[in-house]
Write a protein that binds this DNA or RNA. Structure first.
Length: 275
DNA sequence: ACCCAGGGTAACT
DNA sequence: AGTTACCATGGG
């Protein structure tokens, strides 16, 4: 099954190897990844994206939702460009998109992100899937369900090298398994959802906002990490001592309900040394 | 032998 | 309420 998804300003490489998602691999001229129980190959074309389902079933609708193709990217760029800092960053990050990922997978991978590097996060997540996910043919494995991780002991994750994060993944999985915690959070407004998410073990302000941004597509909150802090201090004149929620307000005052998307692009530009 | 990495938590002032 | 050591691992 092969589709052509027509879209402009969608840079697959920038998107799939950014700090929002950790499971895509470069294979030949394209990229291969796992969505639920499907394996998908995406290839950059001039007029959009070529998508080939190489294992399992996946609807075109589900793929378009994952790629977040309905988002008015052009409109966001137009408004955000009024900020000269963004306009400068846009030169190097145009085509970076925010995906719409599975909430549980996003929760676990960002628990793994704390005090970690992107390169290492990718390795650990892959080891977890290889050990506890289902084989989908070749080297590809599904992301394990909450019920699988919830019944593990930290020692079971030792060989994934998750380190001190292992207990957070297990404890958080225990909370969200069975009961539809993550679906319930989807119905809340962003601030309430944030309050609920930080109740999960190992989830603080920053990881909660990453989940809101990358899984629930709430752009009215901004994950404030070391890089975003650098962006704020260097370009928007704030102090490194400013607390989390006050920086949240600053972000909102500059970019309103688009802040999550906008500062994500500024984050990428800063991270890649292009700002 | 240090230091830091898309942090969070508990135990301190 | 604000600061700090610690968490486990890899890489500079």
């Amino acid at each position: 099954m092969t589709w052509i998804l027509k879209v402009e300003n969608y840079n697959l490489k920038r998107t799939l190897f950014s700090g929002q998602v950790f499971r895509w691999r470069r294979v030949g001229t394209g990229f291969v990844g796992v969505l639920a129980n499907s394996v998908v190959r995406l290839t950059q074309k001039r007029n959009g994206i070529e998508a080939e389902i190489i294992h399992g079933k996946l609807s075109r609708t589900a793929l378009c939702q994952y790629l977040n193709l309905n988002y008015d990217y052009r409109g966001m760029l137009e408004v955000a460009s009024q900020d000269h800092n963004f306009k400068k960053a846009m030169k190097s990050t145009l085509g970076y998109r925010i995906l719409r990922q599975d909430p549980y997978e996003t929760l676990i991978t960002f628990l793994d992100s704390s005090a970690n590097t992107i390169v290492n996060i990718r390795k650990v997540v892959e080891r977890i899937c290889r050990k506890y996910g289902n084989n989908l043919g070749g080297e590809y494995y599904s992301f394990p369900a909450p019920e699988i991780i919830a019944r593990l002991k930290p020692a079971d994750l030792a060989d994934t090298k998750a380190g001190f994060r292992a207990k957070y993944m297990i404890e958080a999985s225990k909370v969200v398994q069975g009961e539809n915690t993550l679906e319930r959070i989807a119905k809340l407004d962003s601030n309430s959802a944030h309050r609920e998410l930080i109740r999960l073990p190992g989830v603080g302000d920053k990881i909660a906002d990453c989940i809101l941004l990358f899984a629930y597509n709430r752009y009215d909150r901004v994950p404030i990490d070391t890089w975003t802090r650098k962006v704020f201090c260097r370009l928007y004149g704030c102090s490194v001592k400013d607390d989390y929620e006050s920086m949240q307000k600053l972000a909102k005052s500059v970019h309103g309900d688009r802040g999550g998307y906008v500062f994500s692009m500024l984050f990428e530009a800063m991270r890649l040394g292009l700002l």
